[in-house]
Amino acid sequence: MPPLPSPAAQAERLIELGVHDIAGLSAADVRAFGKEAEERGGDVLLVVHPDRAPASALAPLLRRGDKPGFVVVDMTDVDRFTPIESVDVPDAPLYLVARPDRGDDMADWSPGEALPALTERDRTPLLLTEGIHWVLQQPGVLDRNHCFMTIGSRLPKADGTLDARTPAIWISNGTGRDGRERRDAPKVGWCWAGNRHTWLGFASTTHRAAGGKNADRTGSDDDQA
């Protein structure tokens, strides 16, 4: 994938889409954060905390050609998918995700296989909202036969276990309940945690940071997927 747009450009993109209004932030706050991140440098994704901008509000902002994004009809609980225990999300309205990777080399793996492998690589899986932010900034991240799961988000059940669904972002074929009019649209959906899909990788990051000089600290090649 090509480098991300600059943090300042990403800030303007979020403002253009109205994400700051969804999050209850001022355009000035978003621009200031983007400027600060740009001064530090690095290949980082500017993200709004999921408590401020949930997946249900972000998904319709996705575009592929003239087709808007959508959430599958049987995922009305999409905003209840929260970070898994091993994912540490900064307690800040805006934060940075460093060096996101689509995880193409893990295509045809199950989520249960991918998570420990990412941990071994010193990477952490993306949240669903982080994946949506990535596609908002780089629509080309979604490509036919090269899309991704975001297994950093799962739905906890009352008994303490996790719902068997794992969220993912891919391109609709316009079949079934999606409707023909949604063919080629960006789609937020789910897959079973034990299933494999040849066209879905596992998106991840090296780390997240609210800010500061180590927001995109460098590491060895071994920590990159």
Rank of each mutant, 00 (worst) to 15 (best):
P50T: 01
R52G: 09
P54C: 06
P54T: 06
P54R: 01
L58E: 02
A59N: 02
A59M: 12
P60G: 02
P60S: 02
R64Y: 09
D66R: 14
K67S: 10
F70R: 05
F70G: 05
F70E: 03
V71M: 06
V71Q: 03
V72E: 11
M75R: 06
D77V: 14
V78N: 00
V78M: 05
P83E: 06
I84K: 01
V89I: 15
D91F: 07
D91K: 15
L94A: 09
A98E: 09
R99V: 03
R102C: 03
M106S: 09
A107R: 15
W109E: 08
S110R: 01
P111F: 09
E113T: 11
A114Q: 10
E120T: 13
P125R: 08
P125K: 08
L126N: 12
L127T: 02
T129D: 03
G131W: 04
I132Q: 03
H133S: 09
H133E: 05
W134A: 00
V135Y: 06
V135Q: 01
V135P: 06
L136Q: 00
Q137T: 02
Q138F: 07
D143A: 15
R144M: 13
H146C: 15
H146V: 12
C147P: 11
I151W: 02
I151P: 11
S153D: 08
L155K: 14
D159C: 11
G160V: 06
G160Q: 07
L162H: 03
L162D: 12
D163C: 12
D163G: 07
R165D: 02
T166R: 14
A168M: 13
I169N: 01
W170F: 15
W170E: 03
I171T: 00
I171N: 02
G174I: 02
G176P: 01
G176Y: 11
G179T: 06
E181P: 08
R182S: 01
P186L: 05
K187W: 07
G189H: 01
W190D: 07
C191W: 10
